[in-house]
Simulated scan of single mutants.
Amino acid sequence: MTTERPLAVCVYCASIEGIPPQYPALAAEVGRQIADRGWQLVSGGGRASMMGTVAAAARSGGARTTGVIPRALVDLEWADHESDELLVVDTMRERKALMEAHADAFLALPGGVGTCEELFEVWTAGYLRMHAKPVVLLDPDGHYAGLIEWVRDIAGRGFVRPEAVARLVVATDVAEALDACAAPVDLSRSQA
């Protein structure tokens, strides 16, 4: 008899302090609901801001957490030594590769340029069929509205294929976003 391992969701989000309180609250809700579903969390391995909040909330609910952090950021982002598994790597590229390898789905919460960079990398890799994992953007308050509008605009100009735009699932509430993380990806909508 084989036991299927729980779904592991990689969450990208802000690690900067001083952001409006609704964003750490959103991260906490994501962590709680990941735990409620019996899933695992993969994160950037920091304990600051939203990144730390999502991991702490997931662990509080019983979820296993894996954090991946570059040595140079251990002190800057206050490494989450409470992680069930904390992987310390040398570079950001190694960090992203390990996060991707440990994840079954990717979920981006509101964040800054680092979050956008991570989102665009896994979104592009999915579109190019380098992975068949869901890529989901949780945007309950229009944080990414301008970005999505820009992507649709350049798609309209022919720079992005409609299939690439369709590869990203945009959700407005936590349950909807997590449902999308568990949904199979329609690879007929992706092409290189």
Rank of each mutant, 00 (worst) to 15 (best):
M1P: 02
M1S: 09
T3C: 10
T3Q: 06
T3M: 13
T3I: 13
L7T: 12
A8S: 03
V9F: 07
V9S: 05
V11A: 10
C13I: 14
S15F: 11
I16R: 13
E17H: 15
P21V: 02
P21C: 02
Y23A: 00
Y23D: 02
P24S: 07
A25V: 12
A25C: 13
L26I: 14
L26A: 07
A27L: 12
A27H: 06
A27R: 07
A28H: 11
R32V: 11
Q33M: 13
Q33A: 15
D36A: 15
G38Q: 11
L41I: 03
L41H: 13
V42L: 08
V42G: 08
V42N: 08
S43V: 07
R47H: 13
A48T: 13
S49N: 15
M50H: 08
M50L: 04
T53Q: 13
A55K: 03
A55E: 11
A55Q: 09
S60P: 12
S60G: 06
G61M: 10
G61V: 05
G62Q: 11
R64Y: 15
R64P: 00
R64G: 00
V68Y: 07
V68I: 15
V68L: 08
I69Q: 00
P70G: 01
A72V: 04
A72D: 03
D75R: 08
L76V: 03
W78F: 10
D80M: 05
D80F: 06
D84A: 14
D84H: 15
E85C: 04
L86W: 12
L87R: 10
V88Y: 07
M92G: 03
K96F: 08
A97V: 05
A97I: 05
A97E: 00
M99C: 07
E100V: 01
A101P: 06
A101E: 09
A101T: 08
A105K: 01
A108H: 09
A108K: 09
A108V: 03
P110D: 01
C116D: 10
C116E: 11
E117P: 11
E117K: 03
E118F: 15
L119M: 02
F120W: 13
E121N: 03
W123A: 08
W123S: 01
W123T: 06
T124E: 01
T124C: 11
T124A: 14
G126L: 14
G126A: 12
H131A: 03
A132I: 12
K133N: 04
K133P: 06
V136G: 07
V136L: 04
L137Y: 08
L137Q: 02
L137F: 07
D139S: 08
D139K: 11
D139A: 05
D141T: 04
D141C: 00
G142N: 12
H143Y: 15
H143R: 15
Y144T: 00
Y144S: 00
A145T: 07
A145W: 01
G146S: 07
E149F: 15
E149G: 08
W150N: 02
D153L: 09
D153T: 09
A155N: 04
F159L: 14
R161I: 06
E163R: 09
E163D: 13
A164E: 04
A166G: 05
A166W: 01
R167H: 05
V170D: 08
V170S: 10
A171M: 11
D173V: 02
L178T: 00
L178Q: 09
C181R: 02
A183D: 05
V185I: 06
D186I: 11
R189S: 10
A192F: 15
